[in-house]
């Protein structure tokens, strides 16, 4: 199919990329600036802020907290989200469409509302606010994304493959284990990665439901409130690098999905 080149959409796309990358480029640039202010002029080049970041004890603790939470969320959201993807794509039960729509409701309800609601519920139920509640909140937040990531390859999955496995003697769960899931693995892996990242960088739910929990975003939040030490910028630059590396892992899958027939 011959593709047209239209200059206006191309220009907007270029501007969009600049818009996207400008803030990232800016704080990366200033993370190497010796000046203690997040502002011009540029007075030199230093990696001192990175060193300071690593040396700050609070960072280490918060990092551990965030990683721990994100890892738990990744596992839970991936399992539950993948299962729900199967429900959405394959289940033939009454009210399936209604329930499937319901399952994506968390995407359209503001995080603030979710966080406030969770806070209220947990306290009413007598549950202590802390790691558990943050993980729970994050799982609610992230699972629909995992489901979406797994649904795409699942829709395109050839059901005859499962029929062939059953035909050769594999029961339903064996088929899942030996055929379906291995083939879907790239999508599941991307969903898991997404869940991890979403949880790691999430602030609102952690703030509302995590008493005594000081996740990394929460720490950064308080740091930037009280003057903005460039260690925050160093953190931001490192975060971006981590996410970029993770995105590289997902890029082949994304390309294949975009290229493939609908």
């Amino acid at each position: 199919m011959r593709r047209e080149f239209h200059w206006f959409p191309a220009a907007v796309t270029g501007l969009m990329l600049v818009y996207s990358l400008l803030p990232i480029a800016t704080f990366t640039l200033f993370s190497f600036n010796p000046s203690p202010f997040y502002a011009f002029p540029l007075t030199g080049f230093t990696i001192g802020w990175y060193e300071k970041l690593m040396a700050d004890g609070r960072i280490g603790d918060s990092l551990l907290a965030s990683v721990g939470i994100a890892a738990a969320v990744m596992v839970l959201a991936t399992v539950i989200g993948t299962m729900f993807a199967f429900f959405v794509v394959r289940a033939a039960v009454p009210f399936k469409r209604l329930l499937a729509g319901l399952g994506f409701l968390p995407l359209v309800v503001p995080v603030l509302v979710l966080a406030a609601g969770l806070q209220v519920t947990f306290v009413e139920a007598g549950l202590p606010l802390g790691f558990g509640t943050v993980i729970l909140g994050h799982v609610i937040y992230a699972t629909p994304f995992v489901t979406l990531m797994v649904m795409a390859p699942l829709y395109r999955y050839n059901p005859v493959l499962d029929a062939a496995a059953r035909d050769l003697g594999a029961g339903p769960f064996t088929t899942l284990r030996l055929v379906t899931l291995p083939i879907l693995w790239p999508g599941i892996r991307s969903g898991a990665l997404l869940a991890f990242l979403l949880s790691f960088n999430e602030w609102a739910i952690a703030f509302f439901t995590g008493r005594g929990v000081n996740s990394l975003p929460m720490l950064i939040y308080s740091l930037q409130r009280n003057g903005l030490p460039p260690t925050v910028l160093a953190y931001a630059a490192l975060s971006t690098a981590v996410v970029a590396v993770a995105a590289l892992a997902v890029l082949p899958l994304l390309t294949r999905l975009l290229r493939g027939p609908k």
């Binding site: 803030p23 990232i24 931001a236």
Partner: peptide
């Protein structure tokens, strides 16, 4: 995916 916090703070320098 770096999160809204970092993205928002970034604008202070711009």
């Amino acid at each position: 995916l770096v999160g809204p916090l970092i993205r928002t703070v970034a604008w202070r320098g711009i």
